[in-house]
Write a protein that binds this DNA or RNA. Structure first.
Lengths: 238, 238
DNA sequence: CATTGCCTCACCATTTCGGGGGAGTTGAAA
DNA sequence: TTTCAACTCCCCCGAAATGGTGAGGCAATG
C-alpha cells in the first residue's frame, strides 16, 4: 500500500512553521500511506479543540454540530486505552454508535480505521487516525505493516501541533502545594470536608483554605471544578 | 554506538509474559544501545510505582528512601513536557536538584541522559530513560541517531508493563445515559446545579435525579466523587 | 531583612447539596 | 403486553459547603 518515505515526511513535518502547514502534511501522509483518510484531532482539559485532516468539510461540520465527540466510540474507546486501536475492536453496539458509523460511511469515512491515542501534559488528549475502505484482511496487513510508523508519526505530529498552540505551555497552572494535593486528593475520593480534615489532622477551617487556594491556582469555579481540573492535569491521582 | 536490532527487541518484548521478563529486556536494551544505563519507571493512579532498569540497587534504594521522586528535575521536567528530554535542558539550578545530580554521578548514573515521558489513561505516567557517561557531542550524536527508536521502544515497553498491571480493566462500571453524561460534564466544568439545569433546559429537580443516578452507577459517595470517577474512567471529557 | 509562599486557625451569613419521598411520560426490549 | 430504563417534574428540610476576611508562625528565597 503506497510508497512511504518516513524520513522525508518527518523532515517536512519538522520544517513546518505554521499550523496551516499541518494540513498539507496530513494530506501528504494520506497519499503516502495510500489510505482514504487521515486525521489528527486534539482536545484539552479546557475543552478547546483542534483538528486537521482529510475528512470532507460536511462531515466535520455535521460531527461538530451534533456533538458526536461525546458519543463517538472511537473517542470513548481510545480515551481509556493506551495502545492504538483498530475500529473493529471497539464497542459499536449502542444505537448512537451504530448511527454514527452508518453516517460516517455515507460521508465516505471508510469501514476500517486505526486510531492512535496520544496524551500530553495537563490532560491534553489527541487522536491520530487513518481510515480506509477495504476488507478486514487488507486492513490487518496495513496496520501490521505500518503500525510503528503511524505511532511515530502520531507522536511527532502531536508534538508539532502543540508547538503551535499558544498558551498551552503558559496554561500550565502553578503546582499545588503538598497539603493542597492531599486535600484535593481526599476530596476527589469522595470524603466530606469533615472527614478530610480529620484525616489530615487539621481543622475544617484550615482545610478550606487549602481547597480555596487550590481552586484559585487552578482557576476553578468551585471545588468540584477544581477536582476535575486537578485530575485532568494530572496534579492529583485517585 | 552498538548494534541495534529493533525488530528483534520488539519481538522479544512482545513475547514477554511476566513482569520479571521486562528486567531482562531492559538489560538487553542497554547492551544493544551500548549505554551505561536504561531505566523504565512508572507511577500509578493509586500512587504505587514500578520500575525496572540497570541502576545499582544502592542508588534505587537511596532514591526511594529519600523520596527523590518529588525533587528530581527529570521527573518534574518530563511531567510537564510532551517530548523526550535531554537532561542537559532541564533546570538543575535548585539546590536539591544539584545535590541529586552530584549523588547520581557518584552512583555511576552518567552525566548524560535522555528521558521519554509516556502517558496512559487514568493519569498514568511513565518515564523511559537512557543515561550514559560521555561528552556532549557524542551524546548529541546518540540521541539524534536513536531518538525514534527510543520513542518506539518506550511506547511498546510501557504498553507491555501496563498489560501486567491488574485492576486496570476490572474497574468497569455501567455506562452513563446521555443525559447523565451531559449533567456530569457540565458539573465537572464548574457550573452550579442551577446553571446546569438551565443549560440543559430542565428543572433542578430533574437534574438532581441525573446526578444521583450517575452517582449511584459510579458507586460514588457524592457529586464530586462521581465527577472524579467519571473523569478518570473516561466517561466524560472536560 | 524583607518578601513570599505555606501551614495553621477563626467567625459569619448565605447558598447549595443531599436524602427522603412520589409520579407521570415515552420508547424499546423481552 | 408487560416490563424496564430513561426522561421529566414536584414537595420538604436539615446538613454541608461556600465566600469573604483576618491573622499568626515558620521557612526559604533573594
Amino acid at each position: 500500500m503506497g510508497k512511504l518515505n518516513l524520513d522525508q515526511i518527518l523532515k517536512d513535518l519538522d520544517a513546518t512553521s505554521a499550523l496551516e502547514g499541518l494540513q498539507d502534511i496530513i494530506v501528504a501522509l494520506r497519499d503516502a500511506f495510500n489510505v482514504d483518510h487521515m486525521v489528527y484531532h486534539w482536545v484539552d482539559s479546557s475543552g478547546d479543540q483542534y483538528g486537521c485532516g482529510t475528512y470532507s468539510p460536511e462531515w466535520v461540520e455535521l460531527y461538530t454540530a451534533r456533538n458526536y465527540l461525546r458519543v463517538d466510540p472511537v473517542i470513548q474507546g481510545c480515551y481509556q486505552r493506551f495502545h492504538p486501536v483498530d475500529w473493529k475492536r471497539l464497542d459499536w453496539s449502542s444505537k448512537p454508535a451504530w448511527e454514527i458509523f452508518a453516517l460516517a460511511m455515507e460521508y465516505g469515512i471508510g469501514n476500517q480505521g486505526y486510531s492512535i491515542p496520544i496524551r500530553g501534559p495537563n490532560g491534553q488528549f489527541a487522536l491520530f487516525t487513518a481510515s480506509h475502505n477495504c476488507d478486514d484482511d487488507a486492513w490487518a496487513e496495513f496496520t501490521e505493516a505500518y503500525n510503528r510508523d503511524l505511532i511515530l508519526i502520531a507522536h511527532y505530529f502531536n508534538r508539532k501541533a502543540l508547538e503551535f498552540e499558544p498558551g498551552r505551555q503558559s496554561e500550565q497552572s502553578r503546582a499545588l502545594s503538598p497539603r493542597e494535593v492531599d486535600a484535593m486528593t481526599l476530596i476527589a475520593m469522595g470524603y466530606s470536608r469533615a472527614q478530610v480534615a480529620e484525616s489530615l489532622s487539621i481543622s475544617q477551617n484550615t482545610l478550606r483554605v487549602y481547597i480555596e487556594s487550590a481552586r484559585f491556582k487552578l482557576g476553578a469555579l468551585n471545588t468540584t471544578h477544581a477536582v476535575a481540573r486537578a485530575l485532568s492535569r494530572g496534579l492529583i491521582v485517585v
